[in-house]
Design a protein around this nucleic acid. Structure first.
Length: 802
RNA sequence: GGGCGCAUAGCUCAGCGGGAGAGCGCUCGCUUCACACGCGAGAGGUCCCUGGUUCGAUCCCAGGUGCGCCCACCA
């Protein structure tokens, strides 16, 4: 064993060994109690980032802990076909090759995506291996593999027959680059510098005009009304009259609607139902027409402006207005604009026919499950957020006009009847026509993700896996997909299997950049997870991420990861001492001395604290306990106290030291699997792997405070230089750990300073205890603790008084 | 505009009704036979501000201020 622990090589070796020996494998076994962490499938095009790393550290910690406790654990990997993301990546590759999606056609394009996936897809699973995640890699699933497709089709048909899926022609978010609809949750908003133009709409029946502020003059040709607030005195008498729309010179009505903000702009709003969500609502409520002036590609279609970009059309229209004195002013205006999160095109609100999920019906059962606590989000604040999100969930647009995804199982006959079946029907269900064409739209990628907890276990077939591992126990993820994924999984599980998919949803913190802001390419503050793994190793990375994971947003901390590296090395060297001192077979013996009884009690106490923390998914405090247990208790006190006896060949000391080290390794293994397994393999007569060793039984903790007096006197000695009067084991331990014979000579001043400090403490405690109101009102244990402190300080002062 | 979170040592963060803590950094002393990624000692803080509750507030309550994340159709 080298004096310095080197994770590289060691970690990869154990990862390969564990997997090759089948130690990650899960098998259904009705005689055993299962424990399942339903792990999120990353995008097939993705690579490991710090959020994944934290999530894996959390999931693997729980799984390894439960595996050691004897549960039949399932930790299943896989990846998501990720609709638009994947299509986007492959399209980019095609452009580099000088071709395009449209040139290939749908069938060839799909084949090309599969080809691409076989070559590059799923690399992220290798990244998962590198961090030491004990997933059953044999059971990797993909949201578009054969069985999964059947599950998705069945889900769609089920919802359709329950009346929860419908088609509607409404305004949706349209990405003009991908030419598809997007849900609200697939957008990103950004503040943009824009121009607000105030344009005069002349009254049709005489003098005067209504000034209207707009950031999108290019949509003017599709204006169908002007709206004002019903109680706005400025425009009260204009309601019901008509104005003339610039450029088109159409006459449109002035209507009243409460959704108009009187304080914004001029207080008058042009209504363009086809190109703005608010206008769309107002238009529908007032029965207005819905003409369009912008095409699917984002280019203008209005008469006289055909084929122009919106910017070009805007210039023409404004010039037209200016000539006629209708352009009142142009001013700088900064506002939030929606973009496609994949290609960053500006979202174009557009009316189109889409498939929708009616959330009012769907949300009832998951809401019950959340309100009753049948499924719990952690922390509590996220539980409330999940409920709020469900209560306010708008209908979900599930169709996408892209090519990569699950094609919607709906067929149209020439008369326009719709037949929904899991596979191609022979004839129209309504009129019997046999000339059917399939819907070309595909489903939102999250529609299939919603089935992950059980489609991965073979549903809709009744498999042994499904029987053993459903429902699962825990799901760990980041809070940004609570609405996209979590709530929908809870719904699908309750709806299709009649049982929740898991009991607990652990929302781990979002890992922010070192500067406390979100990691992003534009800010250039991202952390490369691979670089961290390469430099510090998987154990240190896992420890560091878990250690710093208390609040909802956590800054990435190199210091915490370095702390993990130090912990590995400390542990390694503690083991080195014990292994070199205790070579050879160990005789039967039992702990007898004070320091031995103490460390076993401390291990037991620490274990209970760690278990309590993990039960509450409080990983940071578990890491803190492990760190201090290792450094302070195990190394600085126990090993220092017992070192001499180990070298002397004391059988009791050797046996206990080995047992205590084994115990410590087991407690550390779920967080830092590699270094602990490596050390374990160096222990005498070790054949089985630590990964499948049993979790220890915490015993009594009666002696956890046994060394307290020695530790107190050590403090006093180190500050004052006065050696306390101790006897027996206490003296032996004090001499071994504190080494008074090696301490430098102290000046008398040190003793005096320490006496002064103690006198002050005594005075403070005496004053507190002299306060009648304190003694009367404070809880008894607080008063007792104060008395105990007073006594202790007096005792320590006596010890260093001449 | 709404929701959530955060403000404690130079830095990153614990603690959260009764003596201000950890890790890193800094100073001093230790090449002590596991470890210098070490051991020991130390310096360093109006616990964001203002009120309130309490015998007692860093901790609870109210109101500010600053920062972050998420959400939102003021054109």
């Amino acid at each position: 064993m080298q004096p310095r622990y080197e994770p590289h090589g060691v970690e990869e070796r154990w990862q390969q060994t564990w997997e090759a020996e089948g130690l990650y494998n899960a098998e259904p076994d009705p005689s055993r109690t299962p424990y399942v962490d339903c792990h999120p499938p990353p995008n097939v095009t993705g690579r490991l980032h710090t959020g994944h790393a934290l999530n894996l550290a959390v999931g693997d910690l729980l799984i390894r802990w439960k595996r050691m406790q004897g549960y039949n654990t399932l930790f299943q990997p896989g990846f998501d076909h990720a609709g638009i993301s994947t299509q986007n990546v492959v399209e980019k590759a095609l452009i580099d090759e000088g071709t395009s999606r449209r040139e290939l056609g749908r069938e060839k394009f799909e084949a090309r995506v599969w080809e691409w996936l076989h070559e590059y897809g799923g690399k992220i699973l290798d990244d998962f291996r590198r961090i030491g995640a004990s997933l059953d890699y044999r059971r990797s699933r993909f949201t578009m593999d054969e069985g999964y497709v059947r599950a998705v089709m069945q889900f769609f048909v089920h919802l359709y027959r329950r009346g929860w899926i419908y088609r509607a022609n409404r305004i949706i978010n349209w990405c003009p680059h991908h030419e598809t609809s997007l849900s609200d949750l697939e957008l990103e908003h950004e503040d943009v510098d824009d121009t607000l133009s105030t344009i005069r709409y002349p009254l049709a029946d005489g003098d005067g005009y209504i000034p209207i502020a707009t950031v999108r003059p290019a949509t003017i040709p599709a204006d169908v009304a002007v709206a004002v607030h019903p109680e706005d005195p400025r425009y009260a008498e204009l309601i019901g009259r008509e104005v003339i729309v610039p450029w088109t010179e159409n006459r449109v009505p002035v209507i009243a609607d409460e959704r108009v903000e009187r304080d914004f702009g001029t207080g008058a709003l042009k209504i363009t139902p086809a190109h703005d969500p608010t206008d769309f609502q107002i238009g529908r409520d007032h029965g207005l027409p819905e003409p369009s002036c912008i095409g699917a590609d984002g280019l203008v279609t209005a008469a006289g402006l055909e084929g122009l970009t919106q910017k070009e059309a805007e210039e023409k229209i404004l010039a037209w207005c200016k000539e006629r004195g209708l352009l009142e002013q142009r001013e700088h205006y900064r506002h939030s604009v929606a973009f496609c999160e994949r290609c960053h095109s500006r979202i174009e609100p557009r009316i189109s026919m889409q498939w929708w999920c009616a959330m009012d019906g769907i949300k009832q059962r998951p809401l019950e499950a959340l309100r009753s606590g049948e499924v719990r989000y952690h922390p509590e604040s996220q539980h409330r957020f999940a409920i709020d999100s469900l209560e306010n969930a708008p209908d979900w647009c599930i169709s996408r006009q892209i090519w990569w995804g699950h094609q919607i199982p709906a067929w149209y006959c020439p008369d326009g009847h719709i037949t929904v079946e899991e596979s191609a029907p022979d004839a129209c269900a309504e009129c019997g026509a046999t000339d059917l064409t399939r819907e070309t739209d595909v489903l939102d990628t999250w529609f299939s993700s919603a089935l992950w907890p059980f489609a991965t276990l073979g549903w809709p077939d009744e498999t042994p896996e499904l029987a053993q591992f459903y429902p699962g126990n825990v799901n760990t993820t980041a809070r940004d997909i609570i609405r996209l994924w979590e709530n929908r999984m809870i719904f699908s599980g309750l709806e299709l299997l009649g049982e929740r998919p898991f009991d607990d949803v652990v929302i781990h913190p979002t890992v922010l950049a070192v500067d406390g802001r979100r990691m992003s390419k534009s800010l250039g503050n991202g952390i490369d997870a691979f670089e961290v793994l390469e430099r510090h190793g998987a154990d240190a990375t896992r420890y560091g991420l878990l250690k710093n994971s208390l609040t909802q947003d956590v800054r990435f901390s190199y210091a915490a990861i370095e702390e993990g590296g130090k912990l590995s090395n400390k542990l390694w060297n503690a083991a080195r001492l014990i292994v070199t001192a205790c070579d050879g077979a160990l005789p039967a013996a039992k702990p007898s001395s004070l320091e031995e009884r103490w460390i076993l009690a401390r291990l037991s106490q620490a274990q209970r604290r760690i278990e309590a923390s993990l039960d509450e998914f409080d990983f940071a405090h578990a890491m803190d306990e492990l760190y201090h247990l290792t450094f302070d208790d195990f190394c600085d006190w126990y090993l220092e106290a017992v070192k001499a006896r180990l070298y002397d060949g004391d059988a009791d000391a050797r046996v206990t030291a080995t047992a205590a080290l084994e115990w410590l390794l087991k407690l550390l293994h779920p967080a830092m699997p590699h270094v602990t397994e490596e050390i374990w393999s160096h222990l005498p007569e070790r054949t089985s792997r630590l990964i499948v060793a049993s979790w220890p039984e915490a015993g009594g903790e009666d002696e956890a405070g046994a060394l307290e007096r020695v530790q107190e006197y050590a403090q006093v000695f180190r500050r004052s230089g006065v050696v306390p009067q101790l006897e027996g084991d206490e003296k032996r331990i004090f001499d071994a750990v504190v080494k008074p014979d090696r301490a430098p000579q102290r000046e008398n001043g040190n003793a005096e300073a320490e006496r002064e400090r103690l006198r002050k403490e005594i005075a403070r405690a005496e004053k507190q205890l002299a306060n009648e109101r304190f003694v009367e009102n404070a809880p008894a244990e607080v008063v007792d603790a104060e008395r105990a402190k007073l006594e202790r300080y007096r005792r320590e002062l006596d010890a260093i008084s001449e």
